[in-house]
Each structure stands twice: as C-alpha cells, then as structure tokens.
C-alpha cells in the first residue's frame, strides 16, 4: 500500500477521531446568548459573563419557528428587489434593527444554498455525494420550507417561485443521498437530473440576484 493511501486513511481516522464534536447543544447555548441580547433600543449586547449570570432569570423559548418568524418580519418590510412595491402597513413594518438582521438571515440562507448547490454541482461530475452533505441539505430544505410556509405568495411571487424551485432541488438531492451511493453512475444520473432543473430554471442566477440587494439592504 502506498504512503499516500496510508496517509489518506490516517486523515479519515482523524476526521472520525480527532476531537469529534458531539451533537451541537443548540438550545443550551442559546439560553446564554439570548440572555446577552440587548433589552431595548440603544442598549448594548452583554458580555458572556454577564449573559451567564442572567441566564437563570431568562425563560427559554422554543426554536421551531425562529426562521419562520424572521421570515414573517422580513416579508413585512419587503425584501430585495424581487418583491413588488406595496404600501407599508405600520403594524407590520419592522424597526431598523429588525430589518437589517432579517435581511442578513435571508441573505445567509440564500448564500448557504448557493454554496451547497455549487458543491453538489462539483460532486455530480464524479458521481459521488459526501454523506455529510445530507445533513446540510436537510437543514436547508427545512429552512426553505419554513420560508415557504410563511410567504405571502400573492405579494412575493418571485421569491416564492425561487423558494419552490430551491425546495424541489434540495428534496431531490436529499432523496439521492438517502438512497445510497453504491452505484456512482446512477448517483451521477440522478444528480444530473436534479441539476438540469437547476440550470433550466436559472436558480443560481436568481439566488445571486436575490442575495445581492438583500445584503446591500436595498
């Protein structure tokens, strides 16, 4: 066996055995981060020590609808140039801090989707799909669906359409990944089909177009 092969095996061993992260304690850490958030306009974010000391006094909220709630607010103020101009309803217009944060959340989702699809396109050429991609795809799929659940389709047709196309492609990738990778030719074919939809629908271009004004805050 060559040294390169041995070294690759050593790397694989390290990947599995060098400080392998346990499941992320999402909720536990959030209780501290949340306790450090500013309590009102103009108040500072607290230090970690201060946040810890406040944690016990801060009730925990569930996570499930975080992205959806962000999406509701985000769509309330209108995001990017994809949205049709509508008269703002004062009851739904978010404050400036809301607006910038929510735009970041949307930009983040689109940016991660773009990165993911770029990697998938690369892997499709060789007919492989890294098992770690499945978790990534599932997470993006869940967030996409949350955005879809709360989108006002009539008011946000372009954004809705983009999310629907993204949902379809992500679902296909998850399906391919979950189906196993015993046959590289089949994997390549199925990924090709999913990616053909990506190209035909110009999803990447639309994501980039949506991300740019979102990040710029326009």
């Amino acid at each position: 066996m060559s040294d390169d092969r041995k070294f690759d095996e050593a790397l694989a061993e390290l990947r599995a055995g060098y400080n392998p992260p346990p499941e992320t304690p999402v909720a536990e850490m959030w209780t501290v981060v949340r306790a450090g958030l500013p309590v009102g306009q103009g108040t500072p974010v607290r230090s970690l020590d201060e946040a810890r000391s406040r944690r016990s006094r801060t009730p925990h909220r569930s996570f499930g609808w975080a992205v959806a709630a962000a999406a509701v607010l985000m769509f309330g103020v209108g995001i990017g140039r994809m949205t049709a101009p509508v008269a703002p309803d004062e009851s739904t217009v978010a404050s400036e801090p809301d607006r910038s944060l929510l735009m970041m959340a949307a930009a983040d989702h689109l940016g991660q989707s773009e990165s993911f699809l770029t990697v998938v396109r690369t892997e499709a050429r060789v007919g492989t799909l890294d098992p770690e991609m499945v978790g990534w795809a599932r997470g993006l799929l869940m967030q996409t669906r949350l955005f879809l659940d709360v989108t006002d389709r009539g008011a946000q047709p372009a954004f809705t359409e983009l999310m629907e196309d993204l949902e379809l492609i992500l679902a296909q990738v998850v399906s391919v990944a979950e189906g196993g990778q015993a046959d590289p030719d089949r994997t390549r074919t199925e990924l090709d089909l999913a990616l053909r939809g990506l190209e035909d629908r110009e999803v990447m271009t639309r994501i980039q177009a949506a991300s740019a004004p979102t990040l710029a805050g326009t």
Binding site: T24, M29, W30, L101
Partner: peptide, 22 residues
C-alpha cells in the same frame, strides 16, 4: 425587541452548528 430577538435567533440557528463544530 421581540422582533429583534427572533432575528438574532434565526441567525444563531442558521450558523451555530458549524461554529460549534469548528
């Protein structure tokens, strides 16, 4: 503040796994 918190939380949720793993 409620809206802010949801936004912070959305950002947190979207990134926390990769940050913690690293």
């Amino acid at each position: 503040m409620a809206g802010d918190e949801r936004a912070y939380q959305a950002i947190y949720e979207a990134n926390v796994d990769r940050i913690y793993r690293l």
